[in-house]
Simulated assay, not measured.
Amino acid sequence: MTQLQSAERRIKWSYMDHWRSNGPAGPVDQWHTVKTMSAFLKQIKATGFDAIDTFDFRIWQMYGTYGGPAKYQEMVQDHGLERIVNTFHAADYDTRTYAPHLPETHENILEDFRVTMGRWSEIELDNIIVMPATLYYDMEPVTEDKLKHTADLWNKVGEITAGYGVRLTCHHEFFCGIQSEQDIDAFYSFTDPEYVSLFVDTAQHCIAGLDPVALYNRHAHRVSGFHFKDTRNVATGDDHRHRPDSEIMAPTTGKWFYEMGTSHGLVDFEAMMTAVRDNAYEGWISVEHDKANKEGGDYSESTAISRWYAANVLERIYS
């Protein structure tokens, strides 16, 4: 067995299914038809990915078009991919009903997860990924009490997901209420490592002004996965405070996210992969291309470049 084959066995690559392809009437979502989904899965497999991640809200299309998560996963496997590894629970953070720092909304959130995990129970997932706080402008000022209320909620949610054999893991967007180094460290000090994990997004942490490698090294024992993507910009001023979506509305930056291997990228992926190796992480790394088609970008191109970079740069480090 070669060094690269050995590395491939300990680290596998999953693709987070942000995707658009160009159709006659404009961009086409891969979930549009069975044909567009098949074309998407063929491209993901052809570039060398092992599996996919998806969004929680896609479950309705799985039921409507394929007959449920298990039936959709059969299609994924028929295209040569292993399975669905993680799902991202993209909740509507409305402070009236869904705000982790507000205890009066907790029972609603807990019931949401009881129902959600039942829906996904027919397949094996590694992680259900959440943004652990509301949008920053709905949580500020961030206080110790708010962090403790938030931690208390996710400890309870983690118990629910653990009952289904799934890790509850937290993903900190740059516009999330918990996004600074100080607040992230405090949040994890208040949560139970048995029930709450960290999902490192290399670009999001860079945009928020953090070093994702240093963050990972501090919390490596809590990390259950990664989104590997790059950025060329750090958020400034009120970039993290724009409604309804700072990734779209922040006036300073037209495109936040780029593929690994991009020129002028801020993420030191070679240092990150070295840290992954040195901390003996084994399992899945997810590649993500959120809004890759902005400013003339192309999802298929970004995906191929990232997979080349993973195979020819990162896997050589992890040996």
Rank of each mutant, 00 (worst) to 15 (best):
V115D: 04
V115L: 09
T116I: 08
T116V: 09
M117F: 08
R119M: 12
R119E: 15
W120G: 01
W120A: 01
W120H: 02
S121D: 12
S121Q: 14
S121G: 05
E122Q: 07
E122F: 00
E122N: 12
E122G: 04
I123H: 01
E124L: 03
L125V: 04
D126V: 12
D126P: 05
D126T: 11
N127F: 04
N127P: 10
I129T: 01
M131W: 12
P132K: 12
P132G: 14
A133C: 08
A133Q: 02
A133H: 02
T134F: 01
T134W: 02
L135G: 07
D138H: 11
M139I: 02
M139H: 01
P141Q: 12
P141K: 07
P141C: 06
V142G: 03
T143E: 07
T143A: 12
T143Y: 07
D145H: 02
K148P: 04
H149W: 10
H149F: 14
T150Q: 00
T150S: 11
A151P: 04
A151H: 07
D152G: 14
D152V: 07
L153C: 00
W154Y: 13
N155K: 07
N155P: 03
V157E: 01
E159F: 02
E159Q: 13
I160R: 03
I160L: 05
T161V: 02
A162I: 02
A162G: 01
Y164A: 10
G165C: 11
V166N: 06
R167N: 15
R167T: 15
R167A: 08
T169I: 06
C170Q: 08
C170H: 04
H171E: 09
F174Q: 13
F175T: 05
F175L: 03
C176P: 06
G177T: 05
G177Q: 11
I178L: 09
Q179L: 08
S180D: 14
Q182F: 11
D183V: 06
D185C: 12
D185F: 12
D185P: 09
D185T: 13
A186I: 14
F187D: 14
F187W: 11
Y188N: 13
S189R: 15
S189K: 13
F190I: 09
F190D: 13
F190T: 04
D192Y: 10
P193D: 10
Y195W: 11
Y195V: 07
S197T: 09
S197I: 01
F199Y: 15
D201N: 03
A203Q: 14
